[in-house]
Amino acid sequence: MNSVGSNCNELKQEYDACFNVWFGTQFLKGNNNESMCAPILKLYTECVKEAIKELKIDLKEIERNVLHTEEEKKKPGES
C-alpha cells in the first residue's frame, strides 16, 4: 500500500514491516515495550505530516480524537 506522500513510501514499508513483527511477537504476547520500532515510526510520521500539509487536508481535523470521548456517536437509544 502507498503512503499519501510518495517520498514516504520507503519509510512506510520499513515501518509497517517492523510494526507487524512487533505486533505479532511482542504486543500480542503481552510485551508492551514499543521501543523496537520507535525510531522508524518517528521518521515516518514526520514525513507523512509534511505530505499532509501539502494536501490541504485540515490538520486540526486529523488531530481531533473522537473514539472513547464525549464526541463519539451513540447508537439510537444509547444514552
Partner: peptide
C-alpha cells in the same frame, strides 16, 4: 478504492494499543 494508508500516531498505554491512521 483505497489510494493510500498511513499511520500518523501510535502509542501503547498499559495493554492497549492506540493508533490513528489516515486513509485516502
Amino acid at each position: 478504492h483505497v489510494l493510500s494508508e498511513d499511520t500518523i500516531f501510535r502509542e501503547v498505554r498499559g495493554n492497549k494499543l492506540f493508533t490513528k491512521r489516515l486513509l485516502t
